[in-house]
């Protein structure tokens, strides 16, 4: 099968770099699947999972925002943070989830509430990817 090179880059360094058969992810305009030979495109991403399929196996990455750039030869995901499923610290993510939920209840202030909501989304995303249930 044809493959396309994927690199996931964050400010703290590259996270993923390999050839895959298919990438599916959540862009801000909706779910997005990319096969080799896709038209060049740029799209902002939501907090969510990136699924990378190769040889019948699927790898999961937790991606926090950022955007996706598709070129004929390479697909680049530029995110503020990205983690492979196996390197996610579940206990920490659960702590963050509890913290964010508490703050969301306490805060009526719009800015803090929004921030807490984002933190909650990130935590839930990481937990669901680490535990592999969608």
């Amino acid at each position: 099968m044809k493959t396309v090179k994927v690199s996931v880059v964050t400010p703290d360094g590259p996270v993923y770099d390999a050839e895959v058969e298919m990438i599916s992810t959540k862009a801000q305009s909706g779910e997005l699947g990319i096969l080799p030979g896709h038209v060049p495109m740029v799209a902002p991403l939501q907090i969510g999972a990136v699924r990378l399929k190769n040889n019948g196996q699927t790898e999961y990455l937790a991606v926090n925002g950022g955007f996706l750039e598709i070129r004929p030869d390479v697909v680049t995901i530029l995110a503020q943070s990205a983690e492979r499923a196996e390197s996610i610290d579940v206990a920490r993510a659960k702590d963050a989830k509890v913290r964010a939920e508490k703050r969301l209840q306490d805060q009526q202030d719009s800015v803090d509430a929004k921030r807490a909501e984002l933190a909650l989304k990130r935590a839930v995303n990481r937990i669901s990817i680490a535990e592999n249930n969608f």
Partner: peptide, 20 residues
């Protein structure tokens, strides 16, 4: 330079991209 398709639009992408 590559000419891209923008999803949803160039303006929306700049909104995300430039602060980042």
């Amino acid at each position: 330079l590559t000419s891209y398709e923008f999803e949803p639009s160039a303006e929306d992408i700049l909104k995300v991209l430039l602060p980042q």
